[in-house]
Computed example of a mutant assay.
Amino acid sequence: MLLSVTAIPAAAQDWQVARKGDWIVTARMTDVSSSADDAILTSAGADTALKVDVEHDVMPTLGFTYFLTDQISVEAILGATRHQIRAQGGATDVAVHETWVLPPVVTLQYRPMPEARVSPYVGAGVNYMLFFDGKDQNGFQVGLEDGFGYALQAGVDVAVVGPWSVNLDAKKVWFQSDASINAGALQSQVNLDPWVLSVGLARKF
C-alpha cells in the first residue's frame, strides 16, 4: 500500500501571507525612551555639572507598510509623543521644558521568511525629529533644533487569522539636537538616540 502526503494549499490556511503590492496597516502602542545624559554648558563652554534628562512616553502610533516585492517592503510610522526635559546634577533636579515630538521614521525592510506564519524582518532608514507645542517650565526658555537622523529596525509579524497579525517592533534612532537655554546662556548638544519599542495589531490589505 502506498502512502501519500499532500501539502495543505495556501487557500486552506486560516491566515494570509502579504505579497508584492499588498499593504499592512498596524495600530501600535509605542514606548519612546531616550538615554540622553549630555552635559549642559555655559555659552563660553564651561561645564555647569548639570546634565540633560529626557523622560520616556507611551503613545498610540500607526505603521503603514507597502510590499515592493514578496521580501522587500517599506514602512512609515506616524505618531507623536510628549517628553519632559529636566536638568539634573548634584542636588538639582528641575523641569525646564515639555515638548511634543513628531518622529516619522521611514525604513526599507527585508523579510527572509515571507511565507512563514512567524515572519521576522530587519530594516534601516531615516527619520525627522520635529518638536512642537513646547512649554517652558520654572522660568527657563528652551529652544530645540529639528533635524534628520537615521534608524535601524528589527521586528516580527505573527499571523493570527485571515488578514490579521500581531506585530512586535524595535527601532533604534540616532539623532542629535542643539538645545539653547535662556537665549544661549546655557547650551547642550543632546544625543536623544531613542529606542522606539512597539506592540500592535496589524491588518493586510
Results as ranks from 00 to 15, higher is better:
residue 6 T to F: 08
residue 7 A to F: 02
residue 8 I to G: 02
residue 12 A to N: 12
residue 17 V to C: 04
residue 18 A to C: 05
residue 19 R to H: 07
residue 22 D to W: 02
residue 25 V to Q: 10
residue 30 T to M: 13
residue 31 D to K: 12
residue 41 L to Q: 04
residue 46 A to I: 00
residue 48 T to W: 04
residue 49 A to C: 02
residue 52 V to Y: 00
residue 60 P to D: 10
residue 62 L to A: 14
residue 63 G to P: 00
residue 64 F to W: 01
residue 64 F to S: 00
residue 66 Y to D: 09
residue 68 L to M: 14
residue 68 L to S: 07
residue 69 T to G: 09
residue 70 D to A: 08
residue 72 I to C: 05
residue 73 S to C: 03
residue 75 E to M: 13
residue 79 G to C: 10
residue 79 G to L: 11
residue 80 A to K: 07
residue 81 T to C: 12
residue 86 R to S: 15
residue 88 Q to F: 06
residue 89 G to N: 11
residue 92 T to H: 05
residue 92 T to N: 09
residue 93 D to I: 01
residue 99 T to Y: 07
residue 103 P to Q: 13
residue 104 P to Q: 09
residue 105 V to G: 00
residue 111 R to P: 00
residue 113 M to T: 13
residue 119 S to V: 04
residue 120 P to Y: 03
residue 121 Y to A: 09
residue 126 V to M: 14
residue 127 N to M: 11
residue 127 N to C: 04
residue 128 Y to N: 02
residue 131 F to D: 11
residue 133 D to G: 11
residue 136 D to N: 14
residue 137 Q to K: 15
residue 140 F to M: 12
residue 140 F to T: 09
residue 142 V to G: 13
residue 143 G to I: 05
residue 148 F to K: 05
residue 152 L to I: 15
residue 156 V to H: 03
residue 158 V to A: 13
residue 162 G to E: 12
residue 163 P to W: 00
residue 165 S to L: 06
residue 168 L to E: 07
residue 168 L to N: 06
residue 172 K to R: 15
residue 173 V to L: 10
residue 189 Q to W: 00
residue 191 N to S: 12
residue 195 W to F: 12
residue 200 G to Y: 04
